[in-house]
Write a protein that binds this DNA or RNA. Structure first.
Length: 570
RNA sequence: GUCCCCAUCGUCUAGCCCGGUCAGGACACCACCCUUUCACGGUGAGAACCGGGGUUCGAAUCCCCGUGGGGACGCCA
């Protein structure tokens, strides 16, 4: 079975291999879907080669995976400490395992990517994802992730704004190999990494353009000079006459869009009249000076790229590989997500107690997917699978419901100690005066573990657990009315109170047995006692299991709460 | 207005390269089950190939044209 499947795949692969050049030649006319499929096919083949797999083994493994037999296919991952990369699979009576040395490519990569934010005081979802994709690509390839601060606009800078960037990246776990020195990150041979400190470099590069006759002064600013015939034309949109240049289109080799042509047909400013360089210039100069090999950024920069290509060429520098990733669209209404939009800021998720690893997982899936149905994945797995061909070309709409779901899944999966620590941290940050923090650590722990499987996010914790730490909890009037309307809750509570001293409070199970025995004795159900007891000890009708509540509160407090509640019933 | 990018359920997406599938998964929504409330979990339902041409025995898939969405057009980044 296995050999057969593998054999078929091999034949197709060989055939495809021969057609690759044909397809590449056709690519100019191919639609986006075709282009992506082409890239993905090449990616698969490349991954097989990089992992040292021959086409047969790779094909057979994928064949098994495609038929939903992943449980029997076991990929080893790269072990960066020099372990063996292996793989084995089995189908029916045939078993096969392959062990091989990891390819050297991940260790010898010269991939250099950069994340180049501007310190505007905001760090939003879109920036975070751009940073993440760059970081993932660097980690996947064993390359270098550079952080560069684009602060050429003096109007908008401050030290405080820089911290927003550092804090957010650090919180997300996106450590940088080169960049401003902060904590354990930063340093590097291509510094300084703040553009405001690189003026001399920009002057040197400007001189190159000036000497080559590719820049000139006008109105106190310095302009980049395109090559070609000039003519005046009236621009309808800008309502003014502009000088157009008859220029050849710039070729943009984009790893996600394919081959894009765009004509840059107007000279543009590279130094403002105040003497400061502008974005297009510093961006290109720094990419050259920092030896950036792959420019991964939002698609909103695609139109700028023709300017950048012109500059790279004017400097005689190699043009990097571009990868313009799709934008994140706002949840409601038209347009891309911006700082103003609901849920746009990273610090908001930080504040609300979202798990950074959950946010990273969610963000990685916005515009990229591993090629199968997997969604919740450990970071190492995302790194292993992430690659540019897997990135979509269409924009993605942000969905906070799905993010909340992913976050809940992560919260649910936390080990007890970590969850309690997260909860404590959340309370300390948002409810410094809370009785929860004043409670004994053991008590705090028990309560939080009671809540862990029930809540959707840490932010629900204070409201969800408040009554467990204080005796002055409110009783919800509507709930009270509803619960008291059915049966004889007063009698049930009395019976339970009378039976409670005989209960074994050592575990949920023993408490449950106690209640069940009482219910059986009176020919009633568990629920007849549960609902009124819950109302009495919590004031509401939702929450952790009643047995857990009893256990954590302890017999005395439960009885006291019963007693107090009984006095309010006529 | 000009230029560039994009198009599968309400949303994120698989499938597209290599044409033949009940067009698969997840979130959300609904129903049922589990149950001790609320969640979680389980089962199920509803839900999509933007339109029109072309190629083909056959098109979500290949080609063209529309339409729609997004982006860019600053001495912002």
């Amino acid at each position: 079975m296995v050999e057969r499947a593998g054999f078929e795949q091999l034949e197709q692969r060989e055939r495809r291999g021969r057609f690759v050049t044909v397809n590449a030649a056709r690519e100019v006319n191919a639609g986006p879907r075709t282009r992506r499929a082409l890239r993905q096919g090449e990616q698969r083949a490349a991954r097989d080669r990089a992992e040292g797999l021959d086409a047969e083994a790779g094909g057979a493994a994928r064949g098994l995976e495609a038929r939903g037999q992943r449980g029997r296919v076991d990929h080893g991952g790269f072990d960066r400490l020099g372990g063996i990369h292996g793989m084995c699979f089995r189908s029916g009576r045939v078993a096969l395992s392959i062990l091989f040395l990891p390819s050297l490519s991940p260790f010898m990569s010269n991939v250099r990517v950069r994340f180049a934010p501007s310190p505007t005081g905001f760090f939003h979802i879109g920036s975070a994802r751009t940073a993440l994709f760059n970081w993932l690509y660097a980690r996947h390839t064993g390359g270098t992730f550079v952080l560069r601060i684009e602060d050429t606009d003096k109007e908008r800078n401050s030290e405080q704004f820089l911290n927003v960037i550092y804090d957010s990246l650090t919180w997300l776990g996106l450590n940088w190999d080169e960049g401003p020195q902060v904590g354990a990150c930063g340093g590097g041979a291509h510094g300084p990494y703040r553009q405001s400190e690189r003026a001399d470099i920009y002057q040197a590069y400007l001189k190159k353009l000036l000497d080559a006759g590719r820049a000139y002064e006008k109105d106190g600013a310095i302009w980049f000079k395109l090559l070609g015939e000039r003519h005046e034309v009236y621009d309808e949109h800008r309502k003014k006459t502009v000088t157009k240049v008859k220029n050849a289109p710039a070729l943009i080799d984009d790893r996600i869009r394919g081959r894009v042509e765009r004509v840059e047909d107007e000279d543009f400013v590279i130094f403002r009249s105040d003497g400061n360089p502008v974005f297009h210039f510093v961006n290109v100069v720094d990419d050259i000076a920092m030896a950036i090999t792959h420019v991964i950024r939002g698609e909103d920069h695609l139109s700028n790229t023709s300017k950048h290509v012109e500059l790279f060429q004017a400097f005689g520098a190699p043009v990097p590989q571009f990868a313009h990733i799709p934008l994140i669209l706002k949840q409601n209404g038209p347009g891309k997500m911006s700082k103003r939009d609901q849920g746009a800021l990273i610090e908001e998720y930080q504040r609300r107690g979202y798990l950074p690893e959950a946010l990273v997982n969610f963000l990685s899936l916005l515009g990229w997917n591993p090629g199968d149905d997997r969604e919740k994945m450990p970071l190492e797995e995302i790194i292993r699978l992430f690659d540019l061909p897997g990135v979509n070309q269409s924009n993605a709409r942000f969905d906070d419901k799905k993010l909340a779901h992913v976050n809940m899944a992560y919260l649910l999966a936390q080990p007890a100690d970590r969850f309690v620590a997260l909860a404590r941290d959340y309370f300390q940050r948002t409810q410094p005066g809370s009785p929860a923090l004043a409670a004994a650590p053991e008590c705090f722990r028990e309560v939080m573990l009671l809540a862990q499987p029930k809540i959707k996010g840490l932010e629900e914790l204070p409201a969800y657990t408040g009554y467990l730490f204080a005796e002055d909890y409110p009783v919800d009037a509507k709930v009270r009315e509803k619960v008291l309307a059915k049966g004889d809750p007063k009698a049930r509570l009395g019976e339970l109170a009378a039976a409670l001293p005989g209960f074994d409070f050592s575990s949920d199970t023993t408490i449950e047995e106690g209640i069940k025995a009482l219910a059986a004795k009176n020919a009633l159900g568990f629920g007849d006692y549960q609902s009124v007891a819950r109302l009495a000890v919590s004031g509401i009708n939702v929450g952790p299991s009643i047995t857990g509540l009893f256990r954590v509160l302890g017999r005395e407090r439960v009885l006291a709460r019963f007693g107090r509640f009984l006095t309010t019933i006529t």
